[in-house]
């Protein structure tokens, strides 16, 4: 976006710090990050490094201790339609069918609480449903799945529906918080291809939180790594790169080195990373 002759990034994170508790325990320190329109940014880091916190700050469901987050040059203080959201779990409303979940956004934002009392609502609902069926096909589900409830779907199908649900309101930004981490490896790969394809087709900006190096390198057009230098400091950005430029193997090594040295989560599996056809093992 251009403001006063100057190009402004879609998401601008300026001097952002977050602390919790008393005495304050820093979680994030001095984060500066600009995300441009159409980028697919993977936010990578070990468990507890604050990457989900950063995502929630962009979402507006949490507020920084210091600094600002501007979306298109404007500060947003609570979640709204400008940013779609796909969490790891509880993505779907359990009381609504697949179709009900996908059309919820347009119905609620177009007609409000008592909108279904208006005859106009039922005319528009037909359009919403057609669009929902179109999304159902795009995410690889059948029309016969439309009447199912979330608990009748597999984890992968639930996340597909959650993505369609978020995209129905046509947000410019999609925020995904470890959205695929509960899925089996096969489904996870399918989902990575799906979201990459959808983001390119629709031209939306994605901020994707993951702790999988492999996932970040494979789907991100940019990888941002958060890490903590010492226990008394909050996490800051230690690497910000395009995984498609330069030697991706080298990048993988760099990422692993960073993750290895911070050693905050011994359970994290750093044993093997696969980039394209090359497998880097035993770092």
């Amino acid at each position: 976006m251009v403001q006063g002759g100057v190009t402004v990034s879609l998401i601008r994170i300026q001097q952002l710090s977050v602390s919790y508790g008393t005495p304050p325990r820093p979680v994030l320190s001095d984060i500066d990050l600009n995300i441009e329109d159409g980028e697919f940014v993977c936010l990578l880091g070990q468990t507890g490094c604050g990457k989900s916190t950063l995502l929630r700050l962009v979402l507006g469901s949490e507020h920084p201790t210091q600094g600002h987050i501007l979306i298109d040059g404007v500060e947003h203080h609570q979640p709204d339609r400008t940013r779609g959201y796909v969490p790891q779990k509880y993505s779907l409303f359990p009381d609504k069918t697949v179709l009900g979940n996908i059309t919820f956004g347009p119905e609620v934002s177009g007609f409000g609480l008592l909108g279904h009392l208006l005859p106009r609502f039922y005319r528009r609902r037909r359009e919403f449903r057609e669009k929902a069926y179109d999304y159902l096909r795009r995410i690889g589900l059948h029309e016969s799945d439309a009447g199912k409830y979330p608990d009748q779907l597999s984890g992968g199908m639930q996340q597909r529906v959650a993505i369609a649900q978020a995209l129905m309101t046509e947000p410019r930004i999609l925020l995904m918080d470890e959205a695929f981490s509960a899925l089996d490896p096969g489904t996870r790969k399918e989902m990575q291809r799906l979201i990459r394809g959808l983001s390119q087709d629709l031209g939306i900006t994605v901020l994707f939180v993951t702790h999988s190096i492999q996932e970040a390198i494979q789907i991100g057009s940019r990888v941002v790594v958060l890490a903590r230098e010492s226990a008394s400091n909050g996490s800051s950005i230690v690497l910000d790169c395009d995984p498609r430029s330069g030697d991706s193997g080298l990048l993988a090594r760099q990422l692993l080195d960073i993750m290895e040295t911070s050693k905050e989560t011994p359970s994290l599996n750093l044993a093997a990373v696969e980039v394209g056809d090359t497998q880097f093992a035993g770092f």
Partner: peptide
Amino acid sequence: PEQIVKAFTLGASDFDVAYRVVLKQ
């Protein structure tokens, strides 16, 4: 809380969240 945040990102108002998301659940 993810459900409530999600509803806001889909354009729901506070009362939509109360009556169309939480109460129904």
